[in-house]
Design a protein around this nucleic acid. Structure first.
Lengths: 196, 196, 196, 196
DNA sequence: TATGAATGAGCATTCATTCAT
DNA sequence: TATGAATGAATGCTCATTCAT
């Protein structure tokens, strides 16, 4: 399985397998999402997954990359389109929760992975997520929109709030994500703004 | 194993096994924390764990109970001692992070368990954690300390911020938890207070 | 393992495993007939049995089904071909013991299973065996060949006599089964016939 | 654990353990009748059984001896008191089923053992049971009460009929054993008597 | 490319037995 | 005599991975 250029057919297979892995992870949970179950969902032989991905670790990695790209494509342009840091932060919450609404299965799959593979490929992802938030915060401090506060704690709080949503979603799938996004916006708007 | 009265020796063994389970969970992660590994850590035969706990499920349950008690004993009295909701919320962050500082391994073990056993005995624990926060928030709204906001989103944000700390701690074990507690206090003080 | 259509190779493996399970049960007894021993007999890895049968229970079930079919195919047509109840009863003994002669290992395996899994799938089998005999007896009473007697005790005696043979066979493998069948026929002919 | 003369206390302990083993075997079945369960029933430590009996095998042996003695004491005198072979055969059935009625638990325990420990201490017991029956049959043939028939097949049938009763008893505990004894008597009276 | 039969290591658990007290 | 904690081998089972076809 050389990691060279891939044919169209191979890409299609990989995409199909990733989709089925996501479905398995989201509906069955990490432990039950075995190669055999994923292969069955895809209607292919178990060995074919190893053939295309080299092993389970690489498949998981591919799933992470896929979901992260899904999220990034949805969120980043809309965040970057904002002209103030405050707006960017608001849209950060909005797009994050919008993503959860639109792509619940990929989200849940990602959560399963992040939570189970403690030393998996997500680790750097977590750090990236924090520094991305910190960029927005630094921007707001630079423009004077935001008060002076250490970046990391605020980033941890923001990311923690967002990460808490999927767990809540599992128990209450019909929770109003739009309303929640608005509230989180308000909370961190109050927490970040330069005091009046 | 009937849960009858236990001898001193048995109680000591159980405590030792729980400690080793915590160490295994914290250092190896949930998946690698097998009965064999825990037994090896304790320097005993694997079957002895089943002898004392009946099975892995009960061991995990005992670990959860132990850590929850550890946390509760540390946090609850200090929180209840506060006379204002704002203070209670501040102490909530302080004691949570103080617990993480004093009992890092038990904390990490608990996180591993909570996060992996999606349908385990922790589920109600999570909900309890949220409603406990909501009680403090409702108190502050009642006394007029806090502004008017829906309880659940704020509770999710607060709990999310706290839950984000252990993950951060894994990558940066020397992070200043006291400073972090102070910042989180400030953040949610600003977010909850009645606007000036 | 969904019980979908099976390939030729799989069917062959299953048959081989069933055969080895029969051999293990017959020669080693129920307790020693472990998955590992059966696998060793078959020259395969232990896990492969679970792969093909899902678990030990299903393997046992398959063995029972196989042996019962073997016995049924041999006995039922010949019994049903009789025109009198007395002949049917005679042929019942003859075919039962003929089966024991031709298929000693499968017989012994079945006995091991039936006798050990007190609450297994054999239970109804036992009752079926009795009611089958009772049908023949009722037939003979209806035609006037047989005297009037309660069906169940006679059925118990007949079935008991047949079931006693395998145990005897274990200690005296060369016992004359043909002669034994003739004697049992005579015994129950005398016991059932309308008194002269 | 020298097998020398035993103290009174030791005999009492052994008897208690045998009783509890019988209860465990009869109510839980062979596989569930572990040393630990038997010890729990007796209210003693598991190791004490090994201390008194040397091991499980010897305990089982002791149970068999105890139950056989129970049966023998009940049956043999009454059978020997008969003055004709026909009466002896009748009383054989009566006392066998009487034993089953009076000592159901010991009976069921014995059946469990006989059936599970294929090569246990019961083997010779089985043969003894057959030759005992054959003695009665030979007596009847000698006095002219019984017709001429080979002893072994008749003994097998008789013993088989008796052995079939416990299995039936498990499914229908209230079955009329007195009536069943009478019917079995009749059946084998007809089968053995010199033709009129 | 694709199959699916096969492997082998690892899992939790059970249980007769042992042994220091 | 008696305890009960402790052992160690064995059991059925799961699953990622391999490999001949």
């Amino acid at each position: 399985m050389a990691s060279g250029p891939r044919t169209f057919v191979e890409e299609a297979r990989r995409a199909q397998i990733v989709d089925c892995a996501i479905e398995a992870l989201a509906t069955l949970g990490y432990r039950q999402a075995t190669m055999a179950k994923i292969a069955k969902l895809a209607g292919i032989a178990p060995g074919l997954i190893s053939y295309h991905f080299g092993g389970k670790d690489e498949l998981i990695e591919a799933v992470v990359a896929h979901v992260v790209k899904l999220a990034t494509d949805l969120m980043v342009p809309r965040i970057l389109a904002q002209t103030t840091a405050a707006d960017a932060l608001r849209v950060y919450f909005e797009t994050n929760l919008e993503f959860m609404r639109l792509h619940r299965e990929p989200l849940l799959a990602l959560v399963e992975i992040v939570v189970h593979d403690r030393d998996g490929p997500y680790a750097k992802q977590q750090e990236t997520a924090l520094t991305d938030i910190e960029k927005v915060l630094a921007w707001g401090q630079h423009t004077g929109e935001f008060r002076d506060f250490p970046l990391r704690p605020m980033a941890i709080a923001i990311r923690g709030a967002v990460d808490a949503v999927p767990g809540h979603l599992l128990k209450d799938p019909d929770y109003d994500l739009g309303g929640l996004a608005a509230e989180l916006s308000t909370i961190f708007s109050l927490a970040t703004r330069r005091a009046p």
